[in-house]
């Protein structure tokens, strides 16, 4: 690496006796560029080449807007559900001892390991009107399969481990003495949880939420089986990209993809800011 120093004392890298910097960094950068950066910038280039008017027309197409709304809306609801249940699961796993805890703990990672298509057909079979759960929910007037509710169910499945695995390690490190101090000062258990524990868990919970949300927005495999895929009703944005591609409508597919990427990155940025703020506030 021979980068000319911009001013005295500026070094691209600190000196080290370990060899192989040029080789490994060079290979990594080349691989990263070929596999990730060039293809992704191809997408950005193609959407820029559309021109502003065309892009705007494609982006504000009613079906596109509806699909984006469904994707982001259901992902938001599912991530919110996962915040509640994921935090509860983490709490029970960290604080309580019960037989089979290790197995339950390992099971939480199932959505990471189970291929999404398998999850999709399994959930659809369960929640179909004739399925084990669908049969139970039918009399209650709850239709899950082939409705937006089905999308939420699939995204809850997919997103759960993101919340549990982000919150769990932080929970394990919580200092019990702080709780004891609060208790000796006369705080009730409810006060300790809401005033002492939750604030210190907040950054982890927000991270878990954002990971589950980001994953949910882009999720495809587990959703398309259970969603029913009715345009304007239960058609998610990734599916609309696939449909446009199958119609050889590359500009529309590109535009939807560019909007999804931009929205996801904007959201990650906002969540990063919120996190920095909450770390300063509570950290």
């Amino acid at each position: 690496m021979t980068l000319a120093p911009a001013h005295a004392g500026w070094r691209f890298r600190q000196p080290s006796v370990i060899p192989g910097f040029g080789l490994t960094l060079g290979f990594s950068l080349a691989y990263l560029t070929l596999i990730i950066l060039i293809p992704l910038s191809g997408l950005i280039w193609r959407s820029a080449a559309l021109g502003w008017t065309d892009f705007w027309a494609l982006a504000t197409d009613r079906r596109t807007l509806k699909a984006l709304e469904i994707s982001f809306g259901t992902a938001f609801i599912a991530a919110a559900v996962n915040v509640v249940f994921g935090t509860l699961v983490a709490w029970v796993l960290v604080r309580y001892r019960f037989p089979g805890r290790r197995v339950v703990d390992a099971m939480v990672d199932l959505p990471f390991a189970l291929p999404t298509a398998v999850a999709g057909i399994a959930l659809t079979t369960l929640y179909a009107p004739t399925g084990w759960l669908g049969k139970l929910l039918m009399p209650l007037g709850l239709k899950v399969a082939y409705t937006p509710l089905g999308i939420v169910v699939a995204l809850v499945f997919i997103g759960l481990p993101f919340v549990v695995r982000t919150v769990q390690p932080i929970m394990e490190e919580l200092d019990k003495e702080v709780e004891e101090a609060a208790a000796t000062l006369g705080a009730s258990r409810f006060q300790i949880i809401t005033r002492v524990l939750l604030p210190s868990l907040a950054p982890a919970i927000i991270t878990g939420f954002s990971l589950a949300f980001a994953r949910g927005v882009g999720e495809y495999g587990s959703v398309i089986f259970i969603a029913g895929n009715l345009p304007y009703k239960s058609e998610i944005a990734p599916l609309l990209i696939v449909i446009r591609l199958e119609e050889y409508n590359y500009p529309a597919a590109t535009a939807i993809a560019a909007i999804m990427l931009a929205l996801s990155f904007a959201m990650l940025l906002v969540i990063n800011l919120v996190q920095t703020w909450s770390r300063k506030r509570y950290g």
């Binding site: 293809p39 992704l40 191809g42 997408l43 980001a214 927005v217 882009g218 999720e219 495809y220 495999g221 990734p238 599916l239 990209i241 696939v242 591609l245 597919a253 590109t254 993809a257 999804m260 990427l261 996801s264 990155f265 990650l268």
Partner: peptide, 10 residues
């Protein structure tokens, strides 16, 4: 942070 569909699309 990229949707799998977009990973294929690129």
């Amino acid at each position: 942070s990229v949707s799998p569909v977009i990973s294929g699309l690129v």
